[in-house]
Amino acid sequence: MRKDTTFDGRRWHDMGGTAAGPVPTEQHDFALWEKRVDALMIIASGKGHFTVDGLRRVLEDMGEEAFETMTYYERWIASVNQNLIEAGVYTTAELAQRMSKVAARGPTYGEATCD
């Protein structure tokens, strides 16, 4: 396998000055679940469980493929979760079991959310 020897340390998210196409004009309205992700980030970081730099660090470490294939708030919830586990707010086992329980409630977001 050929090894890439050209990497200079610049990370994928550090985009300033790189070539890119026209600025896209599509706009989407935020769904309720996306607003909830935003709110969880502001609340949990506001209470000192992690920082916005912790959020960014995980987003960066998720890599370019995540940037290209996941939506903004999909990446955010992945990072919020990672930071909360690192902070010891809950364990991976607690998350795992809760996610299974959520999925068992029904096949749509409306059915799976308790409110």
Partner: peptide, 23 residues
């Protein structure tokens, strides 16, 4: 219909619900 309520639940939505409930 609210678009997030009637589409199939995604993995990341499942995570949002779980994280919210745990918090």
């Amino acid at each position: 219909y609210r678009p997030d309520d009637d589409h199939p639940l995604t993995y990341w939505q499942q995570m949002e619900i779980a994280v919210r409930e745990l918090l």
